[in-house]
Write a protein that binds this DNA or RNA. Sequence first.
DNA 1: TTACTATTTGACCAAATAGCCAAATAGTTG
DNA 2: CAACTATTTGGCTATTTGGTCAAATAGTAA
Lengths: 107, 107
Amino acid sequence: MNKKLKEYYSARATIIKALAHPTRIFIVEQLEKGERCVCELQEMIGDDISTVSKHLAILKNAGFISDDKRGLKIFYSLNMPCALNFLECAKKILKNRARHDLALTCK
Amino acid sequence: MNKKLKEYYSARATIIKALAHPTRIFIVEQLEKGERCVCELQEMIGDDISTVSKHLAILKNAGFISDDKRGLKIFYSLNMPCALNFLECAKKILKNRARHDLALTCK
DNA sequence: TTACTATTTGACCAAATAGCCAAATAGTTG
DNA sequence: CAACTATTTGGCTATTTGGTCAAATAGTAA
């Protein structure tokens, strides 16, 4: 792989990496339902608010979500619904795995 | 988030994490074209063969690919084509970004 | 059996990531 | 302006990940 190609794959990996965290998956799925402010997400997630804020920054930099400041609050919303397709793919794998584990158990 | 839910999201994150690496994206896209042995992939990628092997193990554990040993060689193939949907989503984001950067440049 | 090829595994180090706390920033309200 | 609320940023440590080398494993062939 030459340098140019490597950079291209790295850029794509960075985007995927943004979804590769339990909290960030949760956030994306919440935002599917509509915009949420940081404090609402923080309450659902339960981590320190600075931690939640950093996760949001990662999703935003990757391009999955965008923010809108209104008064004191900042509302985040999903702007790449295609992220959900992939989350579905991960779910599908988990389901297959569960079925397989069950098959083993019943042997 | 309770413990059970957290585990569920972590399991999904582990699957997505498997795709969150330039080399592993490359591998999945190669396997889309058909099965490949480790040595073929190693040659295309250029990293140490043990490195490639570890990337393959990660994709296999996640459930994206499977292996078939025939003689000395081990052939890997893709068994979750839905992975490609997501890789497409990452591509789309990159394209949007490029269009946006261009717009800024032309202002 | 010995030598050879393909691949995986383990030990190790360097770099990246995650989470928490404290401090900084920005907007609001009295 | 001072006090307050919502959020981000910086600094720190602990954990995870990625890569390399050497050794182990497995199949083949002489």
